[in-house]
Amino acid sequence: MEQVMKRDRGSNNSEGLAPRPEFGKLSIRNAGKTYDPQGSAVVAVHDCSIEIEAGDFVAIVGPSGCGKSTLMNVLAGFDNVTSGEVYLDDSLLASPRQAPSPGADRVVVFQNGALFPWKTVLENVTYGLLKTNAMSRASAEEKAKDFLSRCGGLDKVMRSYPAQLSSGMQRRVEIVRALVNEPRILLLDEPFRAMDTISKTTMHQHLLKMYSTCRRTIVFITHDLEEAIYLSDKVIVMTTRPGTVKLELTVPLPRPRTPEMTASVEYMDLKKEAIESVHEEAKKAFERGERELA
């Protein structure tokens, strides 16, 4: 296993994969989040520690209510931790004394899609560049066009409004809107949740290609184990509430990933290990739900 892992680490320079970015190292240390709306404390996340190297693709998997979204909100800067710390490239991002705020170095792609429907594709993609950088409109548009064309020819639809595109295209544009800012971390919050299997497979290929050309640290939240293993370098399985890390699986599959790999022995073994782990948690969550309803 250790051998395989080393091979994987070495595969950074494998065909097509861009070199590791300089920034984007994420360190979540003993992070916890307790909600206390009506005096009855609800522990959403408890003593959660995750280390992510710059440029890694990490998937966080777990049953609903495992604190995935809470973690995402902390990383994005929408919410704070109540214990522990989060560091981004060795600078403190969040602690109980320091509330994080959102920024273009950590861009989120939302579950239900959040392209501005009143802006064209190009206006959406340049939005972050114009708001954060002192970039001129012309150079922002130039950069946006470049990214759009590199991501499967999306520059052809840059004058369209989001609603004129298919949902898959909207998703891709939204990922480009995030990537164009060259964020330290790209946060993907179950981005393909509402899609059918075939569209999902296509989207996986698009995402992998985007990752290999514009490599960033990616934190990918999902409840789909297969997609997690297929896409990422590391799968983190979280426990049901209070959410904490139950299992960390390194995925030794080489890049570029191909759909055939999902039939390989390595993939199957990983899947088996992960399924057992997730299933246990899902069962716990389900039983607790039953109890709470009773």
Binding site: A76, G77, F78, S101, P102, G103, A104, R106, V107, V108, F110, N112, G113, A114, L115, F116, W118, K119, Y127, G128, K131, T132, R177, A178, N181
Partner: peptide, 25 residues
């Protein structure tokens, strides 16, 4: 949708940007 506000903040929009680019449209 709350996500539009969040997306704008992620992309570096200020409060007045949000007013002009999210709330009004």
């Amino acid at each position: 949708d709350e996500d539009y506000f969040r997306a704008a903040r992620c992309l570096g929009a200020s409060r007045t940007d949000i007013l002009r680019d999210v709330i009004v449209p």
